[in-house]
């Protein structure tokens, strides 16, 4: 991806996507900026394109119209000859294929593809460029008490850029939130959190061994970071969240252990459960990756209701209709 329009002095971040009118990522109507790169490898990850901290080519064969109709990407575009078509013009499937072993994610094939079957995940952007797009929603923040949320991947991995982005957002009067799993060095958090109004942080599992098994790293650092963050930033709001995955963490034990962890801190204002949905499979295919675990299911409404009652009780509030 080209950086040519980026000033060398401005810090840039690798942005995956900017999504408008988000309503589950903090208060009010929000714009969510997704940064690329993650420090965990959760087995149920539905955003495989967010994992690696580098631009990545994606190919959606359903959009490809084939060599005969098009074939622009096959004409001396790829320096590694990673693109090819098996069919000849008369055969029904003459769609392009990607040899992922050869592809270097240089992105040269992307601009020639008229159907956007070939796209590049990840774009270098400056703080100004991100905020220019974010501020399109300015009048909606005013009406709804919303603002910008930065998510990932693990947004804290790009701590310098993130801190600059959030500080500038604050300077422009935009409410800020981040979504994080907090598996980063404490320094990163210390740098970023002064510029955050609301921290939405995951507590995926409480047991270190199981955390390691399901998420690729144990949770010792995460727990230490969170405790320290709660204590160091008493005026910042924290909201704990668990992505509920049946058979992994849909048990009362996990909910109670999480509550025990967060309840001593007044600035952890809520604990939310996010039911797992299987949306990500297609995206694995587009990246040439194999979807390792395909048999996760969504939690039942009854399970969610039962678990949420425990949370509502702990927060001393009536059970909310959802």
């Amino acid at each position: 991806m080209s950086n040519q329009h980026v000033s060398t002095r401005a810090p840039t971040g690798l942005v995956l996507n900017i999504q408008h009118f988000c309503t589950h990522d903090g208060p009010g109507i929000r714009t969510t900026v997704f940064l690329k790169g993650c420090s965990l490898r959760c087995k149920w990850c539905s955003n495989p394109e967010s994992i690696h901290l580098k631009p990545e080519l994606a190919y959606n064969p359903r959009k490809c119209i084939g060599e005969k109709e098009c074939g622009f990407c096959l004409k001396d575009v790829c320096p590694e000859s990673a693109l090819y078509a098996v069919g000849s013009g008369d055969r029904p499937d003459d769609k392009v294929r990607v040899n992922w072993d050869l592809c270097t994610n240089c992105g040269r094939c992307v601009p020639v593809c008229p159907t956007h079957a070939l796209t590049l995940f990840g774009q270098e952007m400056t703080v100004d460029q991100v905020l220019e797009e974010v501020e399109q929603d300015g009048s909606f923040y005013r009406e709804s008490g919303g603002g910008m949320t930065v998510s990932g991947g693990e947004c804290l991995l790009q701590a310098d850029f993130l801190a600059a982005l959030l500080a500038e957002a604050h300077r422009r009067g935009i409410n800020t939130a981040i979504e994080t799993a907090s598996n980063v060095p404490w320094d990163f958090m210390a740098k970023v959190l002064p510029h955050v109004d609301t921290v939405l942080h995951d507590i995926k599992l409480t047991d270190p061994e199981r955390h390691k098994r399901w998420c690729g790293a144990d949770n010792t650092r995460i727990r230490a970071n969170l405790k320290r963050a709660y204590e160091t930033f008493p005026d910042t709001k924290f909201i704990a969240r668990t992505p509920v995955i049946p058979g992994v963490n849909d048990d009362e034990e996990h909910i109670r252990a999480t509550l025990a962890f967060i309840k001593p801190y007044k600035n952890v204002i809520d604990y939310e459960l996010l039911p797992y949905h299987r949306f990500g499979e297609g995206k694995y295919e587009f990246l040439g990756a194999v979807y390792e675990m395909q048999d996760f299911t969504s939690p039942s409404p009854e399970t969610l209701k039962r678990l949420r009652e425990i949370i509502d009780e702990a927060f001393g509030r009536p059970t909310q209709a959802r």
Partner: peptide, 9 residues
């Protein structure tokens, strides 16, 4: 890119 809420249908 969040997990969707349970109100999809």
């Amino acid at each position: 890119m969040n997990m969707a809420t349970e109100t999809a249908q």
